[in-house]
């Protein structure tokens, strides 16, 4: 069953010198329990689609619909707190929070009490293959692979149904990259999440259940 869908979505923005149509009439329905890969060249509109799916922006035309409700008609802050999580190539952890505090953040935002949030965060960190040793370390004290695992743990903490990942292995070596992809796959196949990965790495795309190709703002099944 479709959990998230794009319905004739177009997105246009004005740069200094021209009007750019980043996404053109994109339509697609994403389902739970599957891994999707969106591939395409740089500037093809992949990240824009991700931004629209995350509710960080609204389409110029068409609708992004989550569980039957268009993102334009919902509390998008709540949507990002509870239903969707984004993982980035640059990890984007809070530099002044420890690994444990980073994972606790979305839980505290949801109003979970500190003690419970701490226990849940610890569980999440351990679930991505890290040990208690990293709990009190700041992001700068962690390797790239460890930072990305913490970012995934943070994404999982609020138990979202949709996980969006923007080039999640872009800054990692092959081994760490493969581990991250395996974690994402297990989230889809074992935890029934809808995982959408934006990548230009065809090796990752090959591991996805569905590959979507973006070219000049248009989306098509590969």
């Amino acid at each position: 069953m479709s959990i998230l869908s794009l319905k004739d979505v177009s997105y246009t923005y004005k740069s200094r010198y021209q009007t750019v149509q980043a996404v053109k009439n994109a339509s697609y329905s994403f389902q739970q329990g599957k891994v999707y890969a969106i591939v395409g060249k740089s500037g093809s509109g992949k990240t824009t689609v991700l931004s629209l799916l995350a509710g960080l922006d609204l389409p110029s035309d068409g609708q992004v619909v989550y569980n039957g409700t268009p993102t334009g008609k919902m509390d998008r802050d709540k949507y990002r707190r509870e239903d969707v999580a984004v993982i980035y190539q640059a990890y984007n952890l809070f530099p002044l929070l420890t690994a444990l505090e980073n994972v606790m953040y979305p839980l505290e935002l949801k109003g979970v009490k500190a003690k419970e949030a701490r226990a849940k965060a610890a569980e999440m960190i351990e679930s991505v293959g890290l040990t208690e040793e990293v709990f009190k370390r700041y992001p700068a004290m962690l390797s790239g692979g460890e930072q990305q695992r913490i970012a995934i743990a943070r994404a999982l903490a609020a138990q979202p149904k949709v996980i969006l990942a923007d080039e999640p292995t872009g800054n990692l070596d092959t081994e760490n990259g493969a581990n991250i992809v395996n974690i994402l796959k297990s989230l889809a196949h074992e935890k029934n999440c809808c995982v959408i990965i934006v990548t230009h790495d065809l090796a990752i795309a090959e591991q996805a259940d569905v590959v979507l190709r973006m070219q000049d703002g248009e989306m098509a099944t590969a």
Partner: peptide, 14 residues
């Protein structure tokens, strides 16, 4: 700005 952006992407209200 990056810190602000992370907060917003995690659903912290404006």
């Amino acid at each position: 700005k990056p810190e602000f952006a992370i907060m917003r992407s995690l659903g912290t209200s404006k």
